[in-house]
Design a protein around this nucleic acid. Structure first.
Length: 261
DNA sequence: ATGGTAGAAGGTCTA
């Protein structure tokens, strides 16, 4: 069973790349983030043509998440219960597989202040509150198997970014942000699928569009897939599909794929 | 002290 997560940075701008990816890698489940379209503009026919069903939570201009699956998913949920904004921002979608595994796609808030006002911490507070809501939601489902994939917008270890000192005060790496994710992982005994198999530094899933970041390998690992405890022993392989970042018209994120037995 | 790039929307914000 293959499950992948990919911040696609506009599903319509990336539609040819998406179809190519589905054909080539054939994930059973694909979590997408930043689809950047409203529901009425979601390319459902193209995705069905590629052999996939889709659950999606769209939004105008920003955010937006989807969950593609070869099978039909049950119990669809289109927003995070008790999200700090009441679910106004489309950052969460989940469904349950026929085998009874809950699959969740999340786009965790970035949390950095608007450039015009570096003293503004509203976005950071929102990020921390969003993590609280996610933790509570998962805690309520801790007795069921689940897999959560997404853009977590957290640099978990210093070795997961090309220059940790440059990001020390960035919302992707602030201690209180790292603690929120670490507390959730510890409390729910989650397995970080990729890092468990590839603990070494220097594996990235995101390279900024600016600064020639891709060509210079100035990247960071901010996309993750976590497994609930009962699925941990099924972990077989995990990899970042870097070739997707090297394509023309690439997203700034590469997909991360995990295989379970 | 801001740039660099990309995307959606629509003439600016978010990342």
């Amino acid at each position: 069973m293959k499950i992948a997560t990919w911040n696609i940075n506009s599903i319509n701008a990336r539609l040819p790349a998406l179809i190519t990816y589905l054909d080539k890698e054939a994930p059973d489940f694909l979590c997408l983030q930043e689809i950047k379209c409203q529901d009425e503009n979601f390319p459902l026919l193209d995705i069905k043509g590629a052999g996939y069903n889709a659950l999606f939570a769209g939004q105008k201009s920003y955010n937006g998440v989807a969950l593609l699956a070869k099978e039909a998913l049950a119990k669809p949920l289109f927003s995070l219960p008790n999200a700090p904004d009441g679910g106004e921002q489309a950052r969460f979608v989940s469904g349950v597989t026929q085998a009874g595994i809950r699959i969740i796609s999340v786009y965790v808030p970035n949390g950095n202040p608007p450039l015009k006002d570096p003293t503004n911490t509203e976005k950071l507070k929102y990020k921390l509150a969003w993590f609280d809501a996610l933790h509570s939601y998962l805690k309520g489902h801790a007795d069921e198997p689940f897999i959560i994939g997404g853009d977590f917008n957290v640099i978990i270890n210093d070795g997961d970014v090309y220059n940790p000192e440059a990001y020390r005060t960035n919302a992707l790496m602030l201690p209180e942000v790292r603690e929120k994710l670490a507390d959730m992982v510890k409390d729910l005994q989650l397995t970080n699928a990729f890092k468990t198999l590839h603990p070494e530094a220097g594996n990235y899933s995101f390279w900024d569009y600016t600064m020639g970041a891709w060509q210079r390998n100035l990247g960071m690992l901010i996309d993750d897939i976590f497994l609930s405890p009962s699925l941990a022993e099924r972990l077989k392989s995990a990899e970042v599909h870097k070739y997707m970042r090297g394509m023309d018209k690439a997203s700034d994120h590469a997909p991360l794929m995990v295989e379970l037995t």
